[in-house]
Write a protein that binds this DNA or RNA. Sequence first.
RNA 1: GGCGGUGUAGCUCAGCCGGUAGAGCAGAGGAAUCAUAAUCCUUGUGUCGGGGGUUCAAGUCCCUCCACCGCCA
Length: 521
Amino acid sequence: MTRRYYITTPIYYVNDKPHLGHVYTTVACDALARFKRLDGFDVKFLTGTDEHGIKVKQAAEKAGMDPQAFTDQVSQTFRDLIKTMNYSNDDFIRTTEDRHEKACQILWKKLVAAGDIYLGKYSGWYAIRDEAYYGEEELTTTPDGKKIAPSGAECAWVEEESYFFRLSAWQDRLLAFYEKNPDSIMPETRRNEVISFVKSGLRDLSVSRTNFDWGVPVPDAPGHVMYVWIDALTNYITAIGYGDGEDSAEFKKFWPADLHMVGKDILRFHTVYWPAFLMAAGLEPPKRVFAHGWWTIEGQKMSKSLGNVISPDGLVARYGVDASRYFMLREVPFGNDGDFSHAQAILRINNDLANGLGNLAQRTLSMIAKNCGEAVPAFGTLTPEDKQLLEMAQVKMLAAVRTELDRQRFHKALEEIWNVVNAANGYIDAQAPWGLKKTDPARMETVLYVLAETIRCLALIVQPFVPDSAAKMLDQLSIPAHNRDFSSLDAAHALQSGTKLPPPQGVFPRIVEDEQKAANG
RNA sequence: GGCGGUGUAGCUCAGCCGGUAGAGCAGAGGAAUCAUAAUCCUUGUGUCGGGGGUUCAAGUCCCUCCACCGCCA
């Protein structure tokens, strides 16, 4: 059995500056990718940027730049996040790369050969600003006869030659696919939306444009470039070598993707258009598309005009990478919308990370440093309490977390982990090793051993979420690099008594802000 | 308007195929003092949105009304 796992973020449109929303999607994928790697899978984790389209072309002109130079620059702001947020992506795709043009054209030709693409004429009310067509009934007319879209953009009647994808022919096969693969769209409420959309009937899809040239040229059709979706969605197969043909080893290995993570705004494209394109080309649809929710900021929509957009740099400067990652994944049931409030972030970070896991490690390791010769203590006969905690940490926790993450329930996975953190803090209080120090030093060592071993397990499993902090904890337990994947998360790989330990250091700092700053948000 | 969803403790949310409500956080009280002024224990009498119905029994099923949200290229 191939234990492989292919996970993707959307490609981000370079017209936008990176913000909390982008980071949220990618962090979720990153945590999953890291988890799967540690769990023994051969993982491919892809992210990238979407760089074509009339808007980009215009933005480049406005900046007085060549479009390629312009996208090079803007795309870089997204690549910078790899360091800022500590992403572990295996590749970064850009739609302006040669390999992508190749892949798009191969796919296009497949669709043509299958008879699913034909030349037609597109006409309608077009708003350049929105890069979108509107129906007559959506428009309002100004006194001087201008047609205005609901967005406020001015529209003009446009007719152009365009290639169409025969989406209308795929309705039944799409519905059959959803039926047979109930987990292919999550959460369930999104699945319902998609199904009802498809049931309401599908129109053919315009898939080329002649009014701009910043895109992938349509094969054998001078003047046409591919329009948005074939170009953008194809990135998922480009990155695994589809440009070298569908027999390429990497493509065979990684397709179909296990998970396309998307924001709910692009759900339809991923669950209707994309599977239809793929099936038409004789390829399998992705196994799952998961649409997560949006963040509001202190109860308000995130928007430039409100000036409440959270930048990745700002986020990390304030809380640190790991704490930021933790908060995003822990605070909200994944799939729901959530609110980002600084007060809540501080509460969560301080309670769970600093006071919970961080303090547990610190109190345990400093007792060991002071009382056990700076080495992993010896242990005697284990009591039922000892065994119970170890069983939780070494056996049950990983299974539970695995189950939750396989359904993208990040908050639940973290909750499972923190059940063990809380149990350990309860255990240390009940056992009171600081009292045993005088009455029964041998028992004290056993208790500290059980705690240290529990912390080892916790540090291992927390790696996907807070990679740097986890590494520090593992360093403090002198765990070698080759014993840090989940195959070591069991009793057989437990700490060896006598192993020298470095001096303990705090791993999760408390966030302390003066009231003024906290009040201002 | 059509389809779907939500409305449960101050806040965020669990409550599977019905048997008289739970968790975390916040708040209150206490214990302990190893630790990042951290930890542990105790503490929840809520019209389960309103009204009606089915049932021995309904947040849990049915109808209806109200509010909010999503999708309808």
